[in-house]
């Protein structure tokens, strides 16, 4: 297991520009936002600390979204205490196609997907069969804080498993492709699609090897893709082109992102949206410290849009107006 991990790290194909660096002045000119500046000029300035729990706790986020009429995957049940696990079997009887998540998980960690039941065993997407006791232990690990930041005791919740829209079928390897929208002052300023790969183990986390694909804000069509920090045009596992895919419901996606920003009150926000075959776009989670890879995926710095919106005295209040503003941004 360890040897595999080490192997995969050491044997990564060296990049052709392995030791080259970008010129900081060129990056500045291209409006690339750095972590230091993101933290001090945007996150610290526009995101109130006390609002963080709203997005760090997925249960709270979900409740807020439901109140604001934003579509989310249906919440089946919440488990807060170990003794609730005694009734787990009866709980699972109702739903056997579901996702178990930690309320404070991050980066898609600690998520267990069950797709059905065969006899006394439960099926996972990879086809593995697991017992009820394995699931119990898994949930009790969640409760003990294994997946929460700092190991703080957590709660787990069971929710609807997304039936993915076929648009991504050719360009994802297992797992959950999702759409990340960066919203600043209530206006979407950048978007990308995150496609799981075999390297990312089915997770839509760019740090773990998922592909980030830039999305044109106006049209909702995909542009370039990056694996890690390297530009790519095809999915490494399926071999299909990842460029020029039209995302369905694009206007609706932008509207959800805009509404989320209003609901949670964070000025600089990452909104993760998934596309369900029948339910359309559903808000999965929010992030108060969204990463900067969206810039690589789009090959476009965030600063020009950030600065443009920063100097606007009045941001339109209507959701539709802001969506229109977003779609006019990179013209």
């Amino acid at each position: 297991m360890l040897v595999n991990y080490l192997g995969s790290v050491i044997l990564r194909v060296p990049h052709k520009n392995m030791l080259s660096f970008a010129n900081p002045f060129v990056l500045k000119k291209q409006g690339v936002l750095g972590i230091n500046q993101r933290n001090s000029d945007y996150i610290m300035r526009y995101n109130k600390r006390k609002l963080y729990p709203l997005v760090d706790d997925k249960l709270q986020t979900k409740q807020l979204a439901i109140n604001a009429d934003i579509a989310v995957p249906k919440l089946y049940s919440t488990i807060k205490f170990n003794h609730q696990l005694k009734n787990l079997e009866s709980l699972l009887q109702e739903y056997n196609d579901l996702v178990i998540k930690p309320a404070h998980g991050s980066g898609g960690n600690g998520i267990l997907v069950l797709t059905g039941k065969i006899g006394k065993l439960y099926k996972t997407p990879s086809g593995e069969l697991i017992s009820i006791n394995t699931i119990r232990h898994y949930i009790s690990n969640i409760l003990s804080g294994m997946y929460s930041l700092g190991g703080i005791p957590d709660s787990a919740f069971l929710e609807y498993r997304i039936q993915f829209d076929p648009v991504f079928d050719d360009v994802s390897f297992k797992g959950v492709p999702d759409i990340r929208i960066i919203v600043f002052r209530g206006v979407p300023i950048s978007a990308m699609v995150r496609l799981p790969t075999s390297e990312s183990n089915g997770k839509a986390n760019l740090h773990q090897g998922a592909i980030g694909v830039g999305v044109n804000l106006k049209s909702g069509k995909t542009t370039h893709g990056v694996v890690g920090n390297t530009i790519t045009t095809h999915h490494p596992d399926t071999g299909h082109s990842i460029e020029h895919l039209q995302l369905p419901y694009w206007d609706k996606i932008l509207q959800i992102a805009t509404k989320c920003s209003d609901t949670v009150g964070l000025g600089y926000l990452g909104v993760d949206i998934v596309l369900d075959r029948t339910l359309g776009p559903l808000m999965l989670e929010l992030n108060a410290r969204p990463g900067l890879n969206v810039q690589l995926a789009n090959q476009l710095g965030l600063l020009s849009n950030l600065k443009y919106l920063e100097q606007m005295d009045q941001i339109p209040t209507m959701v539709d107006q802001r969506v229109a503003l977003a779609q006019s941004l990179n013209e």
Binding site: N17, F21, A22, N23, L27, G34, V226
Partner: peptide
């Protein structure tokens, strides 16, 4: 920028 970002955005 951090030096690591100059590396990260080298293909930009």
């Amino acid at each position: 920028y951090r030096v690591s970002e100059l590396f990260r955005f080298r293909d930009f």
